[in-house]
């Protein structure tokens, strides 16, 4: 399939240059990172930009660095970069696991975490982890910089709080207490598939439990009722069974070509219990 619509291609080496181009083209330019969503959209003529701004040459966007207790993940970092980072594996096991479940290696080698949240499809695998770790998105426009909480980021299916003249610089995560985690993803087969339902689980020794879903509502979201119900409680099977019954009230799945709403709801309960079991088993100093 050819890309029919013509565009200018720019590869700026400085953030400033990219921002100037964005303001010059107004809403008519698109940032190009890994291209795994953007090139598909161009081929399918879902978008019609006058310019593509390839940001892979901008060095500060390639950084991943720890400053005090915060990890900054530059916008150009791919899922493969995250999977190769010991820091992510040790301190952010949920982000590591979510990343490992995105598509397959050939996609992960290109696809960026930032591009994933910018596309903001409801099924994005990175969202449960970012919501649970209370990520912040660093954003710049010509004359301003701002930080957007991940909790305000997703505003609708394929919609985010990012303005068209803004560039994401990266995502910042505070190092959390020691915890264990599990990400459960329902897909047809391993390797390529978008989630039909997904739940991220965080458990720590203080009995702080956190949950976030994807693909079962217009936007990915924390599951606050479930969290409140389990807060500080000792987990047992009976409690988990009761907790699972809260899940339908936290989600609003749709029926589409990939799965029925009932099935998604049912599987969310199953995956919740499965994931809790895994997370509790590996919790350091947790369940003996």
């Amino acid at each position: 399939m050819k890309i029919i619509n013509d565009f200018e291609y720019y590869k700026p080496l400085e953030i400033k240059e990219a921002l100037n181009l964005l303001s010059q083209y107004k809403a008519k330019a698109r940032i190009l990172a890994g291209g795994t969503d953007l090139i598909v959209s161009l081929k399918e003529e879902r978008i019609n930009p006058e310019a593509l701004i390839d940001v892979k040459g901008i060095i500060p966007l390639n950084l991943m660095e720890l400053e005090d207790d915060k990890l900054f993940i530059g916008a150009n970092k791919t899922f493969t970069d995250l999977l190769e980072s010991d820091l992510i594996r040790d301190k952010f096991p949920l982000l590591w696991e979510c990343s490992s479940k995105v598509a397959s290696i050939g996609i992960r080698n290109r696809a960026t975490l930032t591009g994933n949240i910018c596309s903001a499809v409801p099924s994005l695998d990175s969202a449960p982890a970012l919501l649970i770790y209370n990520a912040e998105v660093l954003v710049a426009a010509s004359n301003t910089e701002r930080t957007i909480s991940i909790h305000d980021w997703f505003t609708g299916p394929k919609k985010s709080a990012l303005n068209t003249d803004e560039l994401v610089l990266g995502i910042s995560l505070k190092i959390p207490d020691k915890h264990s985690a599990s990400y459960q993803k329902l897909g047809r087969y391993k390797g390529e598939d978008l989630a039909q339902a997904g739940i991220g689980i965080y458990v720590d020794r203080e009995k702080d439990y956190r949950f976030a879903s994807c693909a079962v509502g217009p936007v990915p979201a924390r599951m606050k009722k479930l969290e409140a119900f389990l807060h500080k409680k000792e987990i047992n099977d009976k409690l988990l069974a009761e907790a699972a019954e809260i899940i339908p009230s936290e989600i609003s799945p749709i029926t589409d070509i990939r799965a029925q709403a009932e099935y998604r709801t049912h599987m969310m309960k199953v995956m919740f219990r499965r994931g809790m079991q895994i997370a509790l088993e590996v919790l350091p100093g947790g369940k003996e």
């Binding site: 291609y9 090139i39 593509l52 892979k56 290696i105 050939g106 996609i107 080698n109």
Partner: peptide, 11 residues
């Protein structure tokens, strides 16, 4: 390894 169908040659 990357998908050459999702990369512009100019990149």
């Amino acid at each position: 390894s990357v998908r050459s169908c999702l990369i512009l040659a100019i990149e």
